[in-house]
């Protein structure tokens, strides 16, 4: 599946935390799409669960004024990823589409990348993955089943991107509708950019809390957010004042300097929960 596109991509995701209800649909979708082993109770208790995307739940306030806060955490596909330079065998590297890619065949399992990941987004295969017989036919043929002893993580469902590329470029089929692309539309690579290529978590999110698109796409849903986030970084770099009340955009652990391709949106609470007028 050689990419023949001439258009430069930089994929990015925006996570709107104000919309997230913590329903875990994305977790299930990811599990099904990416051949992730069944997380048993043991795996959770040993803290070895495979969660390419996980919903972290935090409590805010004291009982009875308690409020649950959710944050979906997945691989942030950092531009300046801390996991990449520490891998001794180049098993993880940055591709030219803004993705942090894991090459399972190269991985030797030093676990240094996971140690160096501020988001704990990298999973190690502590055991050989195992599925019950009834689930074997359910495995996604586009995704590798990983062996024990290697690292794995969110890929932004890169198999969907590659499938889309084959369909659009080589076969001339629009991925979602299955219709033949005719005439000039075939050359328009915008086909890939909006709507057609979505990771499983984004596709399954009922509240549209997750949005995914090309950062270079002028009309796409994420460009504005990334521009805003980059502007804030720029301002902070120059020591300018940032009005935190008028922006919802932030990157997770910006001070680590990894510059993720993931942006979180969160309205800053005007005052603490207990002082809020009832």
């Amino acid at each position: 599946m050689v990419t023949t596109n001439k258009i430069k991509h930089k994929w990015g995701m925006v996570v709107d935390l104000d919309r997230c209800t913590g329903c875990q649909a994305c977790v299930i979708a990811c599990q099904a799409e990416n051949n992730i082993p069944i997380n048993t109770k043991d795996y959770f208790q040993q803290r070895r669960a495979y969660e390419w995307i996980r919903i972290e739940r935090y409590w805010e306030g004291e009982f009875p004024n308690v409020k649950a806060k959710f944050i979906p955490i997945l691989c942030q596909h950092c531009e300046n990823a801390p996991c990449e330079p520490v891998c001794p065998v180049f098993a993880t590297y940055h591709n030219d589409e803004g993705m942090n890619v894991q090459v399972y065949n190269r991985c030797i399992g030093t676990r240094y990348c996971s140690v160096n990941c501020p988001y704990s987004a990298r999973m190690f295969n502590y055991w050989q993955p195992n599925w019950p017989d009834s689930l074997r036919n359910q495995l996604n043929p586009d995704v590798t089943v990983r062996t024990r002893g290697i690292m794995e993580k969110c890929t932004f469902c890169v198999q969907r991107l590659r499938r889309g590329e084959v369909n659009v470029e080589q076969r001339g089929i629009e991925p979602l509708t299955g219709e033949k692309i005719t005439g000039e539309r075939k050359l328009n690579y915008r086909q890939m950019q909006e709507g057609n290529y979505l990771p499983a978590c984004v596709q399954s999110c009922p509240t549209n809390a997750l949005q995914f698109a090309d950062q270079y796409d002028e009309t796409g849903p994420v460009k504005e957010r990334f521009d805003e986030a980059n502007e804030i970084v720029e301002k902070r770099h120059h020591g300018e004042h940032i009005d935190e009340n008028h922006t919802r955009t932030y990157r997770l652990f910006e001070e680590v300097g990894a510059s993720p391709n993931l942006i979180y949106l969160k309205k800053v609470e005007p005052f603490p929960l207990e002082k809020r007028p009832r």
Binding site: F124, Y126, R148, G149
Partner: peptide, 15 residues
């Protein structure tokens, strides 16, 4: 032979 599951390592504490 069995995999690293036999150790006490987990996701934050990989070493």
């Amino acid at each position: 032979n069995q995999g690293f599951g036999v150790t006490g390592l987990n996701r934050p504490v990989m070493w």
